[in-house]
C-alpha cells in the first residue's frame, strides 16, 4: 500500500535578514507514514516541526528533496492535494468579526461547497464539536478552547483524507486539551483519517500516536512506537526514593513500570514509565522492606533529556 506521506531528503533553509546568511531549518528529512495512522513529530521550539508540516501541507516549497502526500507531489500537484488535506494549528486564528458559523461557511466555500451540502456539513461540524450554542458568536468573543475547537472543525470542513495538526493543544487548559485529544482519537478510529501531528508534549504523543519521530535542529533523530523508543532510550519519568536506613535489597527492576534504576548510598533513582500512575504501587512494594522511605522526588521526563539521550 502506498504510504500516506512519503518525504525523501527534505531540506529547507531561510534567509535571516536582507543580507544575512541562510539558516538551515530542515536537513534531509525522510519520513514515511502509513494510511490511517496517527504519527507524531516531537521536538522543541525551533526544531523545524512547523516548517516540515508546512511543506507537506503545500504552504512552503522545499529547497531540496521530494514530498509525496496521498500519492501526489506536494509541489507539482499542490492544487489537487489541497482538496484532500487540511490543517489545524495551535493558536487558532480566524477572521475576528465573523461568527463561528460564518467562518465555517467561508472555509467550506473555499473548498467548493455550497448550498445544502455546505449547510449540512457546517451543521454536522457544529454538532460534532459542540459549537451549536456559539454558532452566532463572533470569533473574537470565543474562549481559547472554543477557538481551538473551531480550528479543528474548520480542518474537517472538506472531509480530508489527511489532517495536519500543528501543536493542536498548545495553550489550552488540561481539561480542554484532554477533550481535543479524545476528539482526535475518535476521528481517527471512526473515519480512518490519517493524522500527522507535531507536539512538544510527550504525554500527548504517547496518548495519540502509534508512532513518533524526534526532530531536532532540522534532523530526524529517531523514530518508532513509544514503547520501542522508551525501551531503546530508557525514556521515563525520574523517580528518586530516599531511604532513612540505606537502600534496601530489592529487585527494583521488577517494580511496576520501572525501565532502569541507579543505586546511590541513601537513595535509588528510577526511570519509570508514567510514574504518577505507578507511584502508589511502587511505594507499596517498597514499604514492605525494612528501610523506610523518607522522601520522594518525582520529575516528569522532558524532551531535553530525551534529546540528550538520543544525541549522546
Amino acid at each position: 500500500m502506498e504510504p500516506a506521506i512519503f518525504a525523501e531528503a527534505i531540506s529547507k533553509s531561510f534567509k535571516t535578514g536582507f543580507f544575512g546568511p541562510r539558516k538551515q531549518v530542515l536537513q534531509e528529512v525522510n519520513l514515511e507514514v502509513a494510511p490511517g495512522a496517527i504519527f507524531g513529530i516531537l521536538g522543541p521550539n525551533g526544531a523545524g516541526k512547523t516548517t516540515f508540516i508546512s511543506i507537506l501541507a503545500t504552504l512552503l516549497r522545499p529547497d531540496a528533496g521530494q514530498a509525496r502526500v496521498l500519492g501526489l507531489d506536494a509541489v507539482k500537484d499542490a492544487g489537487r492535494l489541497r482538496e484532500r488535506v487540511n490543517l489545524a494549528a495551535s493558536g487558532a486564528h480566524f477572521l475576528w468579526c465573523l461568527t463561528v458559523e460564518e467562518n465555517l461557511k467561508f472555509y467550506g466555500r473555499l473548498y467548493g461547497l455550497g448550498g445544502q451540502a455546505l449547510a449540512t456539513k457546517v451543521g454536522e461540524l457544529l454538532d460534532l464539536f459542540d459549537l451549536q450554542p456559539q454558532r452566532r458568536v463572533t470569533f473574537e468573543r470565543l474562549s481559547t478552547g472554543l477557538k481551538q475547537r473551531l480550528a479543528l472543525a474548520k480542518a474537517l470542513i472538506n472531509t480530508p483524507e489527511l489532517l495536519f495538526l500543528d501543536e493542536p493543544t498548545t495553550g489550552l487548559d488540561p481539561e480542554m486539551a484532554r477533550h481535543i485529544r479524545e476528539e482526535i482519537l475518535r476521528l481517527n478510529r471512526e473515519t480512518g483519517l490519517t493524522i500527522l501531528l507535531t507536539t512538544h508534549n510527550l504525554r500527548e504523543a504517547e496518548m495519540l500516536c502509534g508512532e513518533v519521530a524526534f526532530l531536532k535542529e532540522g534532523r530526524l533523530l529517531a523514530r518508532g512506537t513509544m514503547p520501542q523508543l522508551q525501551e531503546r532510550l530508557g525514556l521515563g519519568d525520574r523517580l528518586s526514593l530516599f531511604f532513612r536506613d540505606g537502600v534496601p535489597d530489592l529487585d527494583f527492576a521488577r517494580l511496576p513500570g520501572v525501565l532502569t534504576y541507579n543505586l546511590q548510598e541513601q537513595r535509588v533513582d528510577l526511570r519509570v514509565d508514567r510514574a504518577e500512575e505507578r507511584l502508589a504501587a511502587i511505594l507499596e512494594a517498597v514499604s514492605r522492606s525494612a528501610s523506610r522511605v523518607v522522601q520522594v522526588r518525582l520529575r516528569e521526563v522532558d524532551l531535553a533529556e530525551i534529546y540528550h539521550e538520543i544525541t549522546h
Binding site: L95, Y107, L110
Partner: peptide, 21 residues
Amino acid sequence: LYSVWAKSLKHEFMAPVGLTH
C-alpha cells in the same frame, strides 16, 4: 489584508483556491 490582520492567511492558501477566486 483581512487575512493578514486575522493571521489566517495560511488557512486561506491551504484551501484549493487560486488568485482568480
